[in-house]
Design a protein around this nucleic acid. Structure first.
Length: 414
RNA sequence: GGACAGUUGGGUGAGUUGGCUGAAACCACAUCCCUGCUAAGGAUGCGUACUCGUAAGGGUACCGAGGGUUCGAAUCCCUCACUGUCCGCCA
């Protein structure tokens, strides 16, 4: 959630920042009015409550002293009745405010390039040159078929479309990648965690998936539980509603989880192959950082993900997302796009974001700075998306006969 | 899933004949004093959030969550969640 006091005091600045993310001024004006409205409603209600409390104290005193209380009782009853509508107004004001506030995305950093979609993203650098093939490189689904690596039909039979089954060496490679990623992250100082794959609604709200993106999530019927769309949710919310000590920061965490997404808005996109599935494996990095160190941690996370790709010998490019392509919670995001020779283009394989205090405010994650509590910064990034790495290996390490080499660093894991 | 017990501040733990308890005490922590040594003693401070105020200092809410009774609830009632123990079940 954005800082409403900041919005109130710096409306024009806040407004121009959020225009980068496509939020119109009208929404913000409404938000500002609702905030003011809530404050006024609360002030009235609290004044009445204060009155009620002090009269109740008197009441007790009168009783002990044996004084007549009929007059006081009448006053106190009248005040109590008068509070009913005030209570209702305050409740409505609060609901109205949060309904809007929870749906407003995070402010982008000033340094984020303007733009409306991925075409306006800015390439920062390329790492490793795509190698040239002496033959026409195939796409991963063709290679999968040739090697019997991916059983799309049976994935659909077992579940539904956009599910698949990895078989034989592909399944082993998937597992090898997970281990390789976790080991590498651990060596960089991330603590490895094994977390629940379902989280409750409060956690999903903490990281920003709820209430706005409920349609993207798989909900467990009859339970307050959702299948996680990313390990960012459980890892970040490890410290939901907690106050950390300053010396604990930064908290660096990594974990492997499957991720479940309805892909509601992507009908017709990437339907072939396993670029976009309802269930996919991912190893995630999450950092809970001091505001002063979050930029540094961010760079470290980007470098780590890039290093992993480089260690696998996978050519990629580093891209800064423009305002229009930024996710809901992100203040800044850098994507790593891996080269897919079969598709002849770069495809996203990692996304590293700094949400600043946006998630921390929702999830109430704070740290002690002296006597004060301050919101932490939370960061998250994939290191890496496992299925897409598998695809990238297939396409980049293919031979003319359709066989696939195993990258050197993975051999000890196979 | 069934039965019983519990859920209080960073921790341990009082408080359950409703008002003087936002909460004793102890520990931990912070600052200071004392002390020449890796110890001990003393003083003070020490929950969170919102809100009013330049400030000093007020106000409101929170004793697992939500609702109810009452002038007034940590204390009474209801629902739910969680924890513990016993039983059932199970990787």
């Amino acid at each position: 959630m954005i800082d409403l006091k900041y919005l109130q005091n710096n409306f024009n600045e806040a407004s121009s920042k959020l225009q980068k993310k496509g939020v119109d001024t009208g929404t913000l004006e409404k938000l500002q009015a609702l905030f003011q409205n809530l404050k006024e409603a609360n002030a009235k209600l609290e004044a009445a409550k204060a009155e009620q409390n002090s009269m109740s104290k008197l009441f007790g005193q009168y009783m002990r002293e044996g004084k007549d209380i009929t007059e006081l009782k009448a006053k106190v009853d009248a005040n109590k009745e008068a509070m009913v509508p005030l209570q209702e107004q305050a409740r409505e004001a609060e609901e109205a405010l949060y309904r809007v506030a929870l749906a407003v995305p995070n402010f982008p950093e000033d340094s984020v390039p303007a733009g409306t979609d991925e075409d306006d993203n800015v390439e920062l650098r390329k790492v490793l040159e795509p190698k040239s093939f002496t033959f026409e490189p195939k796409e991963h689904w063709a290679l999968a078929e040739k090697n019997g690596w991916i059983d799309f039909e049976r994935g659909v039979k077992l579940a539904k479309s956009r599910f698949s089954v990895l078989r034989g060496d592909a399944a082993r490679l998937e597992r090898a990648l997970i281990n390789f990623f976790l080991d590498t992250n651990r060596e960089k100082g991330f603590e490895e965690l094994c977390v629940p794959f379902m989280n409750n609604a409060q956690m999903l709200q903490g990281t920003g998936q709820l209430p706005k993106f409920e349609d993207d999530l798989f909900k467990i019927e009859g339970e307050d539980l959702y299948l996680i769309p990313t390990a960012e949710v459980p890892l970040t919310n490890m410290y939901n509603d907690e106050i950390l000590s300053e010396k604990e920061l930064p908290v660096l965490m990594t974990g492997y989880t499957p991720c479940f997404r309805k892909e509601a808005g992507s009908a017709g996109r990437d339907t072939r192959g396993m670029i976009r599935q309802h269930q996919f494996d991912k190893v995630e990095m999450v950092a809970i950082a001091h505001p002063d160190q979050s930029d540094e941690v961010f760079e470290m996370m980007v470098q780590n993900a890039s290093d992993i790709l480089a260690a696998l010998g996978l050519p990629h490019r580093v891209v800064e997302l423009c305002g229009g392509d930024l996710g809901f919670s992100a203040a800044r995001t850098i994507d790593l796009e891996v080269w897919l020779p079969g598709q002849n283009k770069y495809r996203e394989i990692s996304s590293i974001s700094n949400t600043r205090d946006f998630q921390a405010r929702r999830a109430k994650i704070r740290f002690k700075e002296g006597k004060k509590n301050r919101l932490v910064h939370t960061l998250n990034g994939s290191a890496l998306a496992v299925g897409r790495t598998l695809i990238a290996i297939m396409e980049n390490y293919q031979n003319e006969d359709g066989s696939i080499e195993i990258p050197e660093v993975l051999k000890k894991y196979m």
